[in-house]
Design a protein around this nucleic acid. Structure first.
Lengths: 110, 110
DNA sequence: CAGGATCCTCGAAGATACTG
DNA sequence: CAGTATCTTCGAGGATCCTG
């Protein structure tokens, strides 16, 4: 038994992860990790996200205490949200560093 | 400009992330991170994944050089896959540590 | 045992139009 | 500007049956 049973079968962590697993959640969190932003700024900054999806994602993140809304519809990360930024950035860095390897694997052994 | 533009708009990293963003990919990687496993073992270990999804996920991960298949359908992580294990475990740990906070936020401010 | 093929459902997500 | 509401499409993914 490893200590990563946390991920397998029916466990709260897997449920929790489904929150972040959402692609849009990740970009929103990274976006707001850069700086607090207003709705439209965020939407422009992210690019390719519909109003519906942005609203929806922000609501879900708010409902889970990761994002909070300030005056004039400016959104920012909560302390909890900022703590999430750490692992998410780790993942981002990995993606950045290994994109070429993935591409190489794709046309090679893929 | 932060260095996390990597995540925003149309960038390779976001594409790369979509590979891992998949919920099943994460659990498969964590599962194989524990130890190499055969198809059925892995399926039992994960729990709640259909044969279709497991096959599909394993193929995609293989096609991207994250997983390799050995004799008798035993699957294991490649070095690239193992490198991904690092950020994924960071995320797993976060999920583990903050599940209660998320739940608290849900029935409180949610 | 380890899949492949097929059918079907259900929800994610875009498009569009409207509102305070 | 910052959403809300509705309609619709599209594909992820489960169920089931078949195969080497």
């Amino acid at each position: 038994m490893s200590d990563f049973d946390v991920f397998l079968a029916d466990c709260p962590a897997r449920t929790t992860l489904s929150l972040v697993g959402d692609s849009w959640s990740v970009v929103v969190i990274v976006g707001l990790g850069e700086r607090p932003m207003r709705y439209t700024d965020l939407r422009t900054r992210i690019g390719g996200i519909s109003k519906k999806m942005l609203t929806q994602t922000l609501r879900r993140l708010s409902a889970n205490g990761l994002v909070s809304r300030r005056a004039s519809a400016e959104y920012c990360l909560t302390p909890l949200g900022e703590s999430l930024l750490v692992p998410v950035r780790t993942l981002a860095r990995w993606a950045e560093e290994h994109t070429e390897e993935l591409l190489a694997a794709q046309d090679g052994t893929g």
